[in-house]
């Protein structure tokens, strides 16, 4: 009996080993290192004339006292709060659309998934043209308002820059969630809809009482992954606004990049990473606690 249990444990460990090793080497070890570095003044390029010193909590004090960091943090949170429901909403709507018995729905599924396949840098550059002063959005605006509304410098304006990035990001990213929702929709038992229809439920009633509850686990998964992805916002901002105008689109990851790579302050960047990790971890834990997954299954 004991021998068998030992054997099981051994085989379990041997199956876990490759993944565990990779996680330890590429995720756990760098993270522990980052915590250690965050208490030093480690430079990006070490210099023989200057040894790395232990600086205690100096890096953390500087971050907390830096308006740029607080602003970046606020922007990131705002982005996550705005983009998550928007992106998930579009994804759900599109999933229901391509789940309907439309002609050529496989083509539509592919078309809606396209933006997700295109690299973010390419999408950003394409949208930069749309956002230009003489670009598509301004021409549309002028057309719709019969020339009454003047051109808006979308990315150079503090009030429109972040919303522009949110719109772009939701458009680029929704395809992934759409596919997940599609899988979720197809796992709902069609008999439930038939029964509802016999009972005389309308479309809205079907959606509220069958589709939404049936997608509960999918919702949770989509919500958690989209939130975490939103916190990592970097590429669009780096390509389009470089954090401007006046820091209104700066994000924590871009702040970290500037501190660590442009200014070569690896110690301080490590402190940013540690703080950021704690916050993201807390947010996803809170989501886990608030949104209990339905393990029983309904259908």
């Amino acid at each position: 009996m004991t021998i068998k249990r030992g054997g099981e444990g051994w085989s379990a460990w041997s199956i876990m080993a490759p993944a565990l090793l990779l996680i330890l080497v590429f995720i756990a070890a760098p993270f522990v290192l980052a915590i250690a570095l965050s208490f030093t003044d480690q430079r990006l390029v070490p210099n023989p004339r200057l040894a790395t010193r232990f600086v205690c909590l100096l890096n953390y004090e500087r971050i907390v006292g830096d308006n740029g960091f607080l602003q970046a943090f606020k922007n990131t949170a705002l982005f996550a709060v705005a983009v998550t429901p928007l992106q998930s909403g579009i994804a759900l709507a599109m999933a229901m659309l391509v789940n309907a018995r439309l002609p050529a729905r496989n083509v539509l599924r592919g078309v809606y998934f396209l933006p997700t396949v295109v690299p973010m840098v390419v999408v950003s550059i394409a949208w930069a043209c749309l956002f230009r002063l003489d670009g598509f959005f301004n021409q549309l605006l002028s057309f719709v308002t019969f020339g009454a509304a003047g051109p808006v410098d979308w990315l150079q304006n503090e009030s429109t820059a972040l919303p522009s990035i949110i719109a772009l990001s939701a458009w680029q990213g929704f395809g992934f969630q759409m596919v997940i929702y599609l899988a979720g929709l197809q796992s709902i038992n069609p008999e439930l809809y038939e029964a509802a229809r016999i009972e005389g439920a309308g479309r809205w009633g079907e959606f509220r009482h069958i589709t939404m509850p049936g997608l509960r686990n999918t919702h949770i998964f989509v919500l958690v992954t989209t939130t975490i992805a939103a916190f990592k916002l970097f590429t669009q901002v780096h390509v389009l606004t470089q954090g401007g105008p006046r820091g209104s689109t700066n994000t924590v990851t871009r702040y970290l990049y500037e501190i660590g790579f442009s200014r070569g302050r690896v110690g301080q960047a490590a402190a940013v990473a540690v703080v950021f990790f704690i916050v993201v971890f807390a947010v996803s834990m809170a989501q886990r606690l608030l949104l209990k997954e339905d393990r029983e299954g309904r259908s």
Binding site: Q156, E158, Q242, G244, P245, R246, G247
Partner: peptide, 8 residues
Amino acid sequence: VADIVDGR
């Protein structure tokens, strides 16, 4: 420079 151009 970027901030000043943006009106800071």
